[in-house]
Design a protein around this nucleic acid. Structure first.
Length: 185
DNA sequence: CGTAAGATATTCT
DNA sequence: GAATATCTTACGT
């Protein structure tokens, strides 16, 4: 079942939780989402906190679109734009469980272990072929394909990773027991 | 096993 | 100039 655009018209934390277990494909390549982080409007750790810039313009655009940006000068990160009351919310996709077109992902990632193919934002983006060209693209049209979770998933919440602004806010969500997380359970 | 360094775009001071 | 929602490689235990 495809995820409706309305799903993203709620606060980032609910979207982040709801995405765990969903299937994501980009050009047929992808798998099951096992790790997300929420970045809400007004969150000091969010790129949207300091206002609109050229880089984060997609975050203030329509709900249900992609926000893709470069981090540390060399890695890409994939986010889904959502909204609560104020614009500027997004959910960072941190890890997926590889299921479709494994050969393509292995080739893009240099033939490393399957467990490490998509276990982190930068790795995931490289494996799926994400780059700045699809920043702002709608998630309900090709090359994107999003499907609802097959059933309820056991979810573990914890503090977000790699940030310094609000490190204790428990807005990181993982599929419990998955072997494909950026950090073991 | 662990810690450390390097790559380097974009934004803010 | 400094910091950042990261990953890989190199080197020391």
């Amino acid at each position: 079942m495809t995820i409706a655009r309305d799903f993203f018209a709620q606060d980032a934390v609910r979207v982040a939780r709801g995405l765990i277990g969903a299937e994501l494909r980009v050009g047929g390549v992808g798998g099951r989402i096992v790790e997300t982080e929420a970045y809400d409007a007004g969150d000091p750790a969010s790129h949207s906190f300091a206002g609109v810039t050229k880089r984060n313009a997609a975050m203030f655009g329509p709900v249900g679109h992609a926000y893709v940006y470069r981090i540390y000068g060399l890695h890409w990160c994939l986010n889904f734009v959502c909204a609560s009351e104020q614009p500027g919310s997004a959910v960072l996709i941190r890890a997926i469980e590889p299921l479709y077109e494994l050969e393509v992902m292995r080739a893009r990632r240099g033939g490393i272990a399957d467990r490490l193919l998509c276990s982190g934002p930068g790795r995931l983006a490289q494996a799926l072929g994400i780059d700045g060209a699809i920043d702002g693209s709608p998630l309900d049209q090709p090359p994107f394909a999003l499907s609802e979770p097959a059933g309820p998933s056991p979810i573990v919440a914890g503090p977000r990773i790699g940030i310094t602004k609000a490190p204790t806010t428990p807005w990181r969500f993982c599929l419990a027991g998955s072997r494909y997380l950026s950090k073991p359970s």
